[in-house]
Amino acid sequence: MFKRLMMVALLVIAPLSAATAADQTNPYKLMDEAAQKTFDRLKNEQPQIRANPDYLRTIVDQELLPYVQVKYAGALVLGQYYKSATPAQREAYFAAFREYLKQAYGQALAMYHGQTYQIAPEQPLGDKTIVPIRVTIIDPNGRPPVRLDFQWRKNSQTGNWQAYDMIAEGVSMITTKQNEWGTLLRTKGIDGLTAQLKSISQQKITLEEKK
C-alpha cells in the first residue's frame, strides 16, 4: 500500500525546468507551479508516452532531478554507511541512485490517469530550513484521497528550496528505503546496493492501464 502511495505522490513532485522555475526561495510556489507544469506535460505528451513509456525517463531527467536534492536524499538512505564509504564508492552510488530515480519516478508518472491535487495554504517560513507541505491527491475514479507531506529543505548556501522526502501515513519514503535496503547494505555494503540500483534502473517502464 505504501509503495502505491509513494508512486501516486511522485506525480506531483516533478519540479519546473530552470527556464520557467518559480521563486526558488518559496517552496509553496515551487510546489504549486511544479504540480501544474507536471500535470500539463503528462496530459499533453501522452502520444509520446504511450508510444514509448521510457520517454518518461527524459521527462524526469529534464523536469524533476535538477530540483530534487538527489545527493542529500541518497546520503540519508545510506545512513551510517555513508561515512564509511570511499569517495569513489559515493560517486558510483550517487550515479546509480540518480539512474534509479529516473526509472522509479518514471514508473510513478506512468500512473497518471487524470488525477488532480490540492496544496495546503502557504504558511510563514520564518527562519525554518525544513518545511512540510501537505498535498491532497484526488483520484477521478473514486479512490479515497491521498494526503501527503512533502519535505522541502532550504539550501544554506543559495537560499533555494528543494524537495527531498515524502511522508505518507506517518511513514517517510527515506525511512522506507532504509528499511528495504538495510539488509543488503549490511551483507554486501554500498557496492552491493550500487549494483542492485544499476540493475533496477535497467527495467523498462510500463504503463498502468486505467481501472
Rank of each mutant, 00 (worst) to 15 (best):
M1Y: 00
M1G: 02
M1W: 04
F2A: 06
F2Q: 02
R4P: 05
R4T: 04
L5P: 02
L5M: 11
L5T: 08
M6R: 02
M7K: 01
A9F: 08
A9T: 10
L11Q: 05
L11T: 11
V12G: 07
A14R: 05
A14Y: 00
L16K: 00
L16R: 08
A19H: 04
A19K: 09
A19G: 05
A19C: 00
A21W: 05
A22F: 14
A22R: 12
A22Q: 00
D23C: 13
Q24P: 04
Q24M: 15
T25H: 04
T25Y: 14
N26K: 11
N26G: 04
P27F: 13
P27C: 01
P27E: 02
Y28T: 10
K29M: 11
K29Q: 09
K29I: 12
L30W: 04
M31H: 05
M31A: 02
D32I: 02
A34S: 08
A35T: 05
Q36S: 14
K37S: 05
T38A: 05
T38M: 05
F39M: 06
F39L: 04
L42V: 11
K43S: 02
K43W: 15
N44R: 06
N44S: 13
E45L: 07
Q46W: 08
P47G: 05
P47D: 04
P47C: 03
Q48H: 00
Q48C: 10
I49W: 02
R50P: 04
R50I: 15
R50W: 04
A51G: 09
A51C: 00
N52C: 14
N52G: 01
N52L: 06
N52W: 00
P53S: 10
P53I: 02
P53W: 08
D54Y: 10
D54E: 10
Y55H: 02
Y55V: 03
Y55Q: 00
R57W: 06
R57V: 02
T58Q: 14
I59F: 14
V60T: 08
D61L: 11
Q62R: 05
Q62A: 12
Q62N: 14
E63H: 02
E63A: 04
E63S: 08
L64Q: 03
L65H: 00
P66Y: 02
Y67G: 03
Y67N: 10
Y67F: 12
V68K: 02
K71I: 11
Y72Q: 08
A73L: 08
A73V: 14
G74M: 01
A75W: 02
L76W: 10
L76M: 08
L76V: 06
L76R: 06
V77T: 13
V77M: 00
V77H: 00
V77W: 07
V77C: 11
L78M: 05
L78E: 15
L78R: 04
L78A: 06
L78Q: 13
Y81S: 02
Y82K: 15
Y82L: 02
K83A: 01
K83H: 02
S84K: 00
A85F: 06
A85P: 03
T86Q: 02
A88E: 04
Q89K: 11
Q89L: 10
R90P: 00
E91W: 14
Y93D: 02
F94P: 03
A96W: 01
A96R: 03
F97H: 03
R98F: 02
E99Y: 00
K102H: 06
Q103V: 04
Q103K: 13
Q103L: 05
A104Q: 00
G106H: 01
G106T: 09
Q107A: 03
Q107P: 02
A108I: 12
A110S: 10
A110F: 02
A110Y: 04
M111K: 03
H113M: 10
H113D: 11
G114R: 12
T116L: 13
T116P: 10
Y117R: 12
Q118I: 06
Q118D: 00
Q118V: 09
I119E: 11
I119K: 04
A120W: 15
A120V: 05
A120P: 08
P121F: 08
E122C: 04
Q123K: 11
Q123N: 15
Q123C: 12
Q123G: 05
P124V: 05
L125M: 14
L125Q: 07
G126K: 13
D127A: 01
I130Q: 15
V131G: 08
P132C: 00
R134F: 04
R134Q: 14
V135W: 06
V135C: 15
V135L: 10
I137W: 15
D139Y: 05
P140L: 07
N141E: 13
N141C: 14
N141H: 01
P144L: 08
P144M: 13
P144Q: 03
P144H: 09
P145V: 11
V146I: 03
V146C: 09
V146P: 09
R147F: 07
R147N: 03
R147D: 15
L148E: 14
L148F: 07
D149T: 09
F150S: 12
F150W: 12
Q151V: 13
Q151S: 06
Q151N: 06
W152R: 05
W152A: 11
R153S: 13
K154T: 11
S156G: 09
Q157P: 09
Q157E: 10
Q157I: 14
T158Q: 15
T158D: 13
G159D: 03
N160P: 11
W161C: 11
W161G: 04
W161R: 10
A163T: 12
Y164M: 15
Y164I: 04
A168K: 01
A168L: 02
G170R: 05
G170Q: 00
V171I: 10
V171H: 07
V171P: 12
V171Y: 01
V171L: 05
V171G: 10
M173I: 14
M173G: 04
M173H: 04
I174V: 01
I174R: 10
T175F: 15
T175P: 08
T175D: 13
T176D: 14
Q178R: 11
N179T: 07
E180W: 15
E180I: 05
E180C: 06
E180A: 10
E180Q: 10
W181I: 02
G182K: 14
T183V: 08
T183R: 09
L184P: 12
L184C: 13
L185W: 09
L185Y: 15
R186S: 10
R186I: 00
T187Y: 12
T187K: 14
D191Y: 12
D191Q: 06
D191H: 03
G192D: 12
G192M: 15
L193G: 07
T194I: 03
A195Q: 13
A195F: 03
L197Q: 02
L197A: 10
K198N: 09
K198G: 09
S199W: 13
S199K: 04
I200N: 05
I200A: 04
I200K: 12
S201Q: 01
Q202C: 10
Q202R: 06
K204W: 11
K204R: 13
T206W: 08
T206L: 04
T206M: 02
L207I: 00
E208K: 10
E208Y: 15
E208W: 09
E209C: 15
E209F: 14
K210Y: 12
K211F: 00
K211W: 11
